[in-house]
Design a protein around this nucleic acid. Structure first.
Lengths: 128, 128
DNA sequence: CTTGACCTTCCCGTGACTGGAAGCCCTATC
DNA sequence: GATAGGGCTTCCAGTCACGGGAAGGTCAAG
């Protein structure tokens, strides 16, 4: 399986897969011509990565999660801690964004959005 | 007013203020010794920037908003459009994050978090 | 034999800073 | 007058997770 096929099967862009190799997340073997060849294990790792990334885990978390996955003697507590920390970050970000959204919604509502220069949005930004 | 005082008054790190100068968002004059000197207009612009950035507007939006603010002949519609587009992006991101949060919350709930290796989180990531 | 679709590496750019090094400037103190 | 400190300057590198694009090798089909 060449990188193009793998990209299709995992949904990851070829560029991303090459990047993952560069930082040591996958290590496909090479054919004589230099092409990467991916076996089932590589595909599995990449699928795992795609899913973990889709859940927003940073790359280094993904690396750790992969290591834990491979380790039969892991404690699920270690996995859970990573997930909980990440979850906390996400919840934090949601709160920040909601606060921005609320302010912006209010301001946009107040603004006439016509040809006149009078604008509560700018007024608010200017007053600090 | 030197950069340190301005940093305190605006809440922006000195590094950030220098960066804003570098990309042309402020243009403080210089003293003979090379130190930046900020006048009231600079302070006002920086306060505006701090507030716009706090609402999540990207730098280039901030640049445009500053230009609109200075332009007495602006149409509030132009400001409103920028704010609405930005708001839409934020709402998008909130939805993405909420989806991640929901999945993660579920997985974390399912995971015992003990010494045993059995872990629904890893199971979910692995199955893709 | 050529075309076109693959694949390779390499390097730069993204956004908005942040950290750190090397060095100048100013004031206060001994 | 030397020195210590704090603040200021510039410049360079790093962040995070890729994406774009150039220059060139490879392979299957016609």
């Amino acid at each position: 399986m060449n990188i193009g096929d793998i990209a299709q099967r995992t949904g990851l862009p070829a560029k991303t897969i090459r990047y993952y190799e560069e930082i040591g997340l996958v290590t496909p073997r090479r054919e004589a011509n230099g092409y990467r060849v991916f076996d089932d294990k590589d595909i599995h790792r990449l699928t795992f990565l795609a899913r973990a990334r889709a859940l927003g885990f940073p790359i280094e978390d993904c690396r750790t999660l992969l290591a834990l996955y491979k380790d039969d003697t892991r404690a699920s507590a270690d996995v859970k801690r990573i997930a909980q920390d990440h979850l906390a970050q996400i919840e934090d970000k949601i709160l920040q964004l909601q606060s921005m959204r609320d302010t912006l919604t209010h301001l946009v509502h107040e603004c006439a959005g016509d040809n006149r220069p009078d604008c509560p949005i700018l007024k608010d930004l200017a007053k600090g």
